[in-house]
Design a protein around this nucleic acid. Structure first.
Length: 265
DNA sequence: TCGATCCTGTAG
DNA sequence: CTACAGGATCGA
């Protein structure tokens, strides 16, 4: 389920809980989740190593280990990563010194957990676009790539190579705020609109980050104004908050896209 | 650049 | 029963 803001919030939450601990055991309850590796392989690679850092790139969580190894976790649709006392429903978990476990749960088992060298991680992530909440997310490059892509705007955003970390919700919300038609080829989008989109991507992700931090660090309900509430995502048939027209749902790349047919052209 | 595929749970 | 789900990869 998670996009960049949720992944980052999880990283922030677990980092202080696991950094400095050592891995004493590795358990794999579902082999598909570590594919193409084997349980014996990741156990051998991770056991005995110390957790030195917890980083993130796009939607990947990267747990840096001593000796130049990294646990790469991708949550995909339903993955969760947390620190717990027991493995519970985990697909994979790592025993840590101090009596805690780093637990990966995932009902659909579409997520991935792998133990790789730093070089392998670099290679695997080489095609990822810039981090949208960093200075690397330059308008110039974004504009150039937009001008070269004939893909529909929504698919362009979800591609991960032009900008990292956007998923179905925040892509739709950024397009709505920039008033762009998700179906329109990116290359046909006027320069000013591309610049607007660049801004709304950052804006939407910053707002979502605030909500995600609250959700992961303070169990319970959101207070007024704390929750990120989508304007269009998941709102087929409801009124557009700007113009009142009914929100439409279409299919793009096998996924739902929600948009306002009047505001977004 | 597109479609099929990987999985399971839940809602209608 | 079918549709759908906050995602990515691979092969054509």
């Amino acid at each position: 389920m998670p996009e960049l803001p949720e992944v980052e919030a999880i990283r922030e939450k677990i980092a202080p809980e696991i950094t400095g601990r050592r891995i004493t055991g590795v358990h794999v309850a579902r082999a598909a989740v570590i594919r193409p590796q084997r349980a014996s392989t990741i156990a051998k690679l991770a056991a005995g190593r110390k957790i030195e850092a917890v980083n993130r790139r796009g939607k990947n969580i990267l747990v840096g280990l001593s000796g130049g190894y990294v646990i790469r976790v991708h949550l995909r649709m339903t993955g969760e990563l947390k620190v717990a006392r027991e493995g519970g429903n985990a697909r994979v978990w790592f025993d840590l010194t101090g009596g805690r476990k780093l637990v990966f749960e995932d009902t659909r088992a579409l997520g991935r957990v792998n133990v790789l060298t730093e070089a392998e991680v670099r290679k695997a992530l080489a095609k990822l676009g810039p981090e949208p909440l960093s200075a690397d997310f330059a308008l110039e490059r974004f504009t150039e790539e937009a001008a070269r892509s004939r893909r529909p705007a929504k698919l362009f955003l979800m591609d991960q190579t032009h900008v990292a970390g956007l998923g179905n919700i925040y892509a739709a919300e950024a397009l709505f705020r920039a008033r762009l038609d998700p179906r329109k080829p990116m290359s046909e989008t006027p320069r000013a609109k591309v610049a607007a989109l660049h801004s709304t991507i950052v804006e939407v992700l910053r707002e979502a980050m605030k909500s995600a931090r609250i959700a992961y660090n303070r169990p319970g309900k959101f207070q007024e104004g704390e929750e990120f509430i989508p304007a269009v995502y998941g709102r087929e048939g409801e009124r557009c908050p700007v113009c009142g027209r009914k929100i439409r749902r279409i299919e793009q790349g096998g996924r739902s896209t929600y948009f306002c047919p009047r505001c977004q052209r």
